[in-house]
């Protein structure tokens, strides 16, 4: 049995949006400490890796490791039915062939007198985040505020079932790597650079020197260059540009893939680029304290 409830269901919506243009089918691997996804695009040029730690969920139960094969387009269609404020619970049986997705509207949506249920829920051993637990909490809050009566929220609740599939996914063993360059910058700024550079050409060079990070493109229309300098003391954390460099690195990449990666921009204010000479770049979007989505992209190399 696998069951996980994410209060901020929007994260799941955005995650699937951020990978569905790159991979069509993938496995959600569930263990007792995280859910993860690793999948390559069809051409094996890029890879997406997602990790959501169990601690980031308000209820998480995974009795034994499970691989849930899903079609990303279909899951995206179902997740579009969830509101941005909805909590999302994922459920799967150990030997089932479907993934149940429960969407619950925000608590204040509907309020009704439903006393018996709430009293029954008091003192129960329901798991945290379950419907009964929520009822107990809300009951408690109202009782504290008003001193009398019991009010319980009836959730705005939708249940969808997604058919699962058997997927033989090719898993890459990616070793822990110390990168020569780590750049942290606002995710929105990175998105804008990628979008603008695509107007001029297909191949982006990213060059990191002590001067800063230079993004450059050459095409038939002309050339474009953007220099980003370290700005570690910006007022807001998310506006900071931080560059850690052991040695200068210059690599070139297909803009088409970098553009797919920027679909994850809404997941967080910051993007982290990791680079070393002649190895794939890692483009990481941290997701609060919950986890991350990382993209790996093989470089283009002069022969």
């Amino acid at each position: 049995m696998f069951e996980a409830r994410l209060t901020s269901g929007k994260i799941l919506k955005q995650l699937i949006e951020a990978l569905k243009d790159l991979v069509q089918e993938a496995n959600i691997d569930c263990s007792d400490d995280e859910i993860s996804i690793q999948a390559m695009d069809n051409s094996h040029v890029s890879l997406v890796a997602v990790s959501l730690r169990s601690g980031g969920f308000d209820h998480f139960r995974c009795d034994r490791p499970l691989s849930l094969g899903f079609n990303a387009t279909n899951m995206g269609k179902i997740l579009k039915c969830a509101g941005n404020e909805d909590a999302i619970t994922l459920k799967a049986e150990d030997d089932g062939d479907s993934l149940s997705m429960v969407f619950e509207g925000p608590n204040q949506d509907r309020i009704a007198d439903f006393g018996e249920f709430a009293r029954g829920a008091r003192g129960s051993d329901s798991p945290p985040g379950s419907r009964r637990e929520k009822c107990w909490k809300i009951d408690f809050n109202f009782a504290t505020m008003r001193g009398v009566g019991v009010l319980v929220v009836i959730f705005d609740r939708k249940i969808y079932e997604l058919k699962l599939m058997d997927i033989d996914s090719e898993q890459l063993g990616i070793p822990d790597t110390d990168y020569k360059v780590t750049i942290q910058m606002p995710s929105g700024e990175f998105q804008r650079i990628i979008r603008d550079m695509q107007v001029l050409g297909d191949t982006l060079s990213i060059s990191c020197t002590k001067e800063g990070v230079k993004f450059g493109v050459q095409g038939d229309l002309g050339t474009g260059n953007v220099l980003i300098r370290q700005n570690a003391h910006a007022e807001k954390d998310e506006d900071r540009v931080m560059i850690e460099m052991e040695e200068p690195v210059e690599l070139t990449f297909a803009l088409r893939y970098l553009n797919f990666f920027t679909k994850a921009t809404n997941l967080g204010p910051t993007v982290i680029l990791n680079m070393s000479p002649d190895v794939p770049i890692v483009v990481e979007y941290p997701i609060g304290e919950t986890g991350h989505i990382k993209y790996y992209l093989a470089p283009k190399i002069d022969e």
């Binding site: 051409s43 890029s46 090719e170 898993q171 890459l172 002069d302």
Partner: peptide, 14 residues
């Protein structure tokens, strides 16, 4: 033009 490599050049399939 530089050549586009795949990730299989850099990482092993498990």
């Amino acid at each position: 033009d530089p050549r586009q490599y795949t990730l299989l050049k850099f990482y092993e399939l498990n």
